[in-house]
């Protein structure tokens, strides 16, 4: 489970370099994202463009990562592939997160 991060202008992008966020990696995923979040970043965008499959464990791990954000920090999502997008819509989690079509779109938004 790898994540890569890039930061500019107060916006940090954390890209999940993994095709699946499932029960086998959910806990590790949560820890990696938590560790990757820069304390000074006001807005963090989780880039899910490489993720082709997510189950409820993975969804729970993303919610947990969001809840672990510091005061004044926000976790957005970007680049949801069709399967991942469907899971967010079915569980209505799409109403909880700000979801951007792409990382570029997230940079343009505030």
């Amino acid at each position: 489970m790898d994540v890569t991060t890039h930061e500019s202008d107060g916006l940090q992008v954390i890209r999940v370099e993994e095709a699946r966020i499932d029960a086998a990696v959910a806990i590790q995923f949560k820890d990696r994202v938590r560790a990757a979040v820069a304390p000074g970043a006001r807005r963090v965008v989780l880039d899910l463009g490489a993720v082709q499959f997510i189950d409820s464990s993975g969804l729970g791990a993303i919610v947990a990562a969001m809840k672990a954000m510091g005061e004044g920090q926000r976790l957005d999502l970007a680049g949801l592939t069709p399967m991942v997008d469907r899971v967010f819509r079915l569980t209505r989690m799409d109403a909880i997160f700000v979801i951007h079509d792409s990382v570029e779109g997230a940079r343009g938004a505030s």
């Binding site: 729970g60 079915l90 569980t91 909880i96």
Partner: peptide, 25 residues
């Protein structure tokens, strides 16, 4: 049952989506 999404961020469920998804699909 569908997760209840009212309330604060700290109350958001981190689980319980599994059976909901099975029933839905």
């Amino acid at each position: 049952a569908a997760a209840c999404l009212d309330g604060s961020c700290a109350d958001l469920p981190e689980g319980g989506f599994g059976w909901f998804l099975i029933h839905r699909l």
